[in-house]
Computed example of a mutant assay.
Amino acid sequence: MIKPLFQNLLVMVNGTEASINAVKYAVLMAKLYRSKVHAVYVVDTATIKQLTLNRIFIEEESREYEESLEQNGLRYLAYVDELGKAKGVKIETELRRGAIWSEIVASAEERHIDAILLGGSDHDSTDQKEINSSTFKSILLNARCSVLTVKERMIEQLYKLA
């Protein structure tokens, strides 16, 4: 018998509208395919460390920024949990620290993920596209599972109907 393609899904959450849309898409997939959904937010300590080493941040600023990112991450993950519960889907949430792409790939391997969902958007700012493209490219190159970029234009309506 063939193993279902989407038993375990991982969604990268970064607080953007695109990543929240990817969560909604994962919720729909979970309902359709009876998948398990994992949402991961990564506190980008790798970039913070680089900024500190290059003397762009001082040590105290680094700690404050990291704490701020952690609080944001916890808030986003709580919201993701609510989105799942609203549609009867349990979403396991996880906050990690490190380089975003490597933590996403590591989490996917640890959890035997079948597909990583990344939020994509045609109307992101230029800065966000540059950040995402580097992160997304690294995930694409290093992931051992399928990677889906979610660009569903009707996701809000589909989520409401589910």
Score class of each variant (00 low, 15 high):
143 A>D: 02
4 P>G: 12
60 E>S: 14
9 L>K: 01
4 P>I: 07
96 R>I: 02
111 R>G: 05
66 E>R: 15
94 E>F: 01
54 N>P: 00
160 K>P: 05
90 K>Q: 07
102 S>T: 15
77 L>S: 04
116 I>T: 10
69 L>D: 08
127 D>V: 15
79 Y>K: 00
74 L>S: 03
1 M>A: 11
75 R>H: 10
126 T>F: 12
136 F>W: 02
11 V>Q: 02
138 S>M: 05
99 A>D: 04
70 E>I: 01
148 L>G: 03
129 K>M: 06
118 L>H: 02
14 N>Y: 08
153 R>N: 08
18 A>E: 08
27 V>Y: 00
67 E>D: 15
61 E>H: 12
16 T>F: 01
153 R>P: 09
67 E>K: 15
84 G>A: 07
150 V>M: 04
55 R>S: 15
32 L>E: 08
116 I>P: 06
121 S>G: 10
52 T>I: 05
65 Y>L: 11
40 V>E: 02
66 E>Y: 10
129 K>W: 03
95 L>F: 00
136 F>T: 06
151 K>I: 08
73 G>S: 04
84 G>M: 03
148 L>M: 14
117 L>C: 07
94 E>M: 06
32 L>I: 11
64 E>Y: 12
121 S>A: 10
81 D>K: 06
16 T>S: 15
24 K>L: 04
81 D>C: 01
96 R>F: 03
146 S>L: 14
82 E>F: 05
22 A>F: 02
25 Y>P: 06
99 A>V: 04
105 V>F: 02
79 Y>S: 00
73 G>R: 03
139 I>P: 00
69 L>N: 13
103 E>C: 07
125 S>R: 02
33 Y>T: 12
96 R>K: 15
50 Q>F: 13
110 E>R: 10
118 L>G: 05
115 A>S: 09
138 S>K: 02
58 I>H: 13
79 Y>E: 00
10 L>Q: 06
130 E>D: 07
63 R>C: 09
65 Y>K: 10
154 M>R: 14
69 L>E: 14
76 Y>W: 11
136 F>V: 06
91 I>C: 01
20 I>A: 04
10 L>P: 06
97 R>H: 15
48 I>G: 10
158 L>C: 05
59 E>N: 12
142 N>C: 07
123 H>F: 02
66 E>S: 15
71 Q>I: 07
90 K>S: 07
22 A>D: 05
72 N>V: 08
51 L>V: 09
90 K>G: 03
125 S>A: 06
112 H>G: 13
48 I>C: 12
70 E>L: 05
70 E>R: 15
161 L>T: 11
115 A>R: 08
81 D>S: 04
40 V>Q: 03
95 L>N: 03
135 T>W: 00
24 K>V: 09
66 E>V: 03
67 E>V: 07
97 R>V: 01
42 V>P: 06
54 N>A: 14
116 I>S: 09
29 M>V: 09
102 S>A: 12
151 K>T: 08
160 K>M: 09
29 M>P: 10
